[in-house]
């Protein structure tokens, strides 16, 4: 790609219909409210272990999701709740897995970082940084092997982009022209280490260049830009041209995980991002400009709050897994 990537993919105003914008707003708000509630339940001790929230990054998964069709597969790291909700997994099942209950997607045996849905073609939820990149390349390999035009979406952070297997995967995907979209969610901090301190490559969107992987750098806080870039990447992959790399410039408002005091960045930096770049507020402003009425947002908020409250109730009332679960699912009966 010799075109200069632009910071914002937006060219001629919103390229989304009012209905699509409403859907996107609703999905982003659902992820936001779900994650706020997860943070709250963690604070109450109802969610244990590690819990990584997606707050601030919602435009990425929702904008890409708008371009996915039945059969497309997705896979991500442990910051996975948003991906699951957008894949169509139920808030109840996800929240109940967070609380370790039998109603969770893995019957309480996976937790926040390890959830899957074969039905929704969501392949995890992976706790090993970068592992999902090679696995996701395998999902694309399977699409190709079966002769389908389905695409595999592989999410990873800028921190994972330092892992060697990412580049082994780029090589394999480019070599076999696999239908794989690599999405780097660059939220600037790999746990507590800023990208400047971790990467000698200053422009991650160019990290696929040695393999000739097409790419775009995208404003990941702007759902219009994400949508436009995802559309291009999807068409490229579906037509058999090979992998595509999207670097999404984004920001997470919360710590790396719940136990991160976030002393590596200034509070003011977070405040500034929330005030000026918030993806949900940005979309709302655009929707208001396009003539959508304030009452629409109230209704969506009410609707989303009810969904999250229902999921929360379910996640607390669903029983703990039966002790017999301890010994199931270790091997498939041959």
């Amino acid at each position: 790609m010799d075109e200069t990537p632009s910071a914002s993919g937006r060219s001629n105003g919103p390229a989304l219909s009012p209905e699509t914008m409403k859907r996107a707003y609703r999905d982003m708000l659902l992820v936001r409210r779900f994650e706020e509630k997860a943070g709250q339940l963690y604070g109450m001790g109802l969610i244990g272990g590690f819990c990584h929230l997606y707050i601030g990054q919602e435009a990425i998964v929702v904008g890409i999701g708008l371009n996915m069709k039945q059969g497309d597969k997705s896979i991500t790291s442990y910051r996975d709740h948003g991906q699951m909700l957008v894949a169509g997994m139920t808030p109840r099942g996800v929240m109940a897995e967070l609380t370790g209950r039998s109603g969770g997607y893995s019957h309480g045996k996976g937790g926040s970082m390890h959830m899957f849905s074969r039905e929704k073609e969501f392949y995890g939820g992976h706790g090993i940084v970068g592992a999902q990149v090679a696995l996701g390349t395998g999902l694309a390999f399977a699409n190709r092997y079966r002769g389908s035009d389905e695409v595999s979406i592989v999410y990873f952070g800028e921190g994972a982009s330092a892992q060697g297997q990412v580049y082994e995967s780029f090589n394999l995907a480019a070599l076999h022209k696999l239908p794989c979209i690599y999405v780097i969610e660059n939220n600037r901090y790999g746990m507590g280490t800023s990208i400047e301190r971790a990467s000698a490559s200053k422009d991650l969107s160019r990290n696929g260049e040695p393999w000739g992987i097409a790419s775009r750098k995208v404003d990941g806080m702007d759902i219009f830009a994400v949508h436009e870039a995802a559309k291009e990447a999807m068409e490229y992959c579906r037509s058999g041209k090979g992998p595509f790399l999207l670097e999404m410039e984004t920001y997470r408002y919360r710590g790396h995980s719940m136990s991160d005091p976030a002393k590596y960045r200034q509070r003011a930096e977070v405040e500034e991002m929330r005030r000026t770049r918030d993806p949900i507020e940005t979309l709302k402003a655009e929707m208001l400009r396009s003539g959508i009425e304030e009452s629409v947002f109230k209704d969506i908020e009410t609707d989303v709050k009810a969904i999250v409250a229902d999921a929360t109730e379910f996640a607390q009332t669903s029983p703990e897994p039966d002790v017999s679960e301890l010994w199931t699912d270790i091997l498939v009966e041959a």
Binding site: A134, L135, G136, G138, L139, F141, Q165, E168, S169, L172
Partner: peptide
């Protein structure tokens, strides 16, 4: 590392 991960990913799809 790469081709094993890729093969495991393919196996997860069946």
């Amino acid at each position: 590392h790469g081709f094993t991960g890729m093969a495991v990913g393919a196996a997860l799809t069946g």
